[in-house]
């Protein structure tokens, strides 16, 4: 049974330290709800685990089944069983979705799949996530609605069958029917393949459908508390203020720099003048 172990992880983005010593473990066969206020490091954690070069790891270790993840390049992390469902999946014009999926499946298989096998696998997966098969003749995520992009992420998870899947706000932008479809896929993957899940969401609705086995709350770039499903239920009702009272943690507010470009200001002129739009 594969286990992802994160020890004292510190991560910087553009010189700013976001994660300040995360310790966390998740195994296959676990569903962990990951909660926390906006800007406190949840997505940063996922990107750092997956190896996004924008996220600089300054201290700490990550192991997958005893192997040092930080020594692996991004494709190796994927092939070893890590999977990230992106919050905002990239739209890549011109890259045919079917070509991309076939290449991804081949990278994860010992033997290259035949065209017939590929279309059979894809047909089955599209039925599970209820996306029209024809969509895969289009460019990757290009022109997909928000819901279609999220379901496409889930479809990729089904095709690549990871050991540990990280789902970053997979429920945002989904209507009620789509949330049910996505949660059914997660539950099926969990029951049949015993995939371990780390799931970020701000809403209890998804958690009620997939029933996490644990809850972990990240505040100020650290794990503030861990426990059972009662934690996400309490956060849904009361927010995060009780963490301050019970754990003595002062919750840092996300700082939003004032945008210099406002109504009446020419954005192009500002850009030329300052070299930035912010």
């Amino acid at each position: 049974m594969k286990k992802l172990v994160i020890k004292d992880l510190h991560v910087e983005v553009e010189g700013q330290e976001i994660l300040k010593g995360i310790n966390l473990e998740v195994s296959e066969g676990e569903k962990v709800a990951l909660l926390g206020p906006n800007g406190h490091g949840k997505s940063t954690l996922f990107n750092a685990i997956m190896g996004n070069p924008r996220y600089k790891i300054t201290k700490g270790e990550i192991f997958l089944d005893g192997e040092n993840v930080l020594e692996m390049d991004v494709p190796t992390r994927s092939k070893k069983g890590l999977f990230l469902c992106f919050q905002n999946p990239s739209e890549i014009p011109g890259v045919n979705s079917a070509d991309f999926l076939k290449a991804a499946i081949n990278e994860h298989s010992e033997k290259r799949v035949s065209l017939y096998q590929f279309y059979k696998i894809l047909d089955q997966a599209t039925k599970e996530v209820k996306i029209p098969f024809e969509m895969f003749n289009r460019s990757l995520n290009d022109g997909f609605s928000g819901g279609e992009k999220k379901r496409n992420e889930i479809l990729q998870m089904l095709l690549l069958n990871p050991s540990i899947a990280m789902l970053d706000e997979i429920d945002s932008g989904l209507d009620v029917d789509a949330i049910n479809i996505v949660s059914d896929c997660i539950n099926k993957q969990f029951e049949e393949k015993h995939t371990g899940f780390l799931i970020i969401s701000h809403y209890a609705r998804l958690f009620e459908l997939i029933k996490p086995t644990r809850s972990v709350v990240i505040v100020n770039g650290k794990v503030a508390c861990e426990g059972g499903p009662e934690i996400y239920k309490r956060i849904d009702k009361e927010g995060y203020e009780w963490i301050k009272d019970e754990y003595g943690i002062n919750i840092e507010k996300e700082e939003q720099p004032m945008n210099k470009v406002s109504i009446g200001v020419c954005a192009t002129k500002e850009y030329v003048k300052n070299g930035t739009s912010k």
């Binding site: 997956m50 190896g51 996004n52 070069p53 924008r54 390049d73 991004v74 494709p75 992390r77 994927s78 092939k79 999977f83 990230l84 992106f86 999946p89 990239s90 890549i92 890259v95 991309f100 290449a103 991804a104 990278e107 994860h108 990729q156 690549l160």
Partner: peptide, 13 residues
């Protein structure tokens, strides 16, 4: 770079 990272994250070289 975001496009590249997306594709690499699915195992592509």
């Amino acid at each position: 770079n975001d496009h590249i990272f997306y594709l690499l994250s699915r195992g592509l070289s």
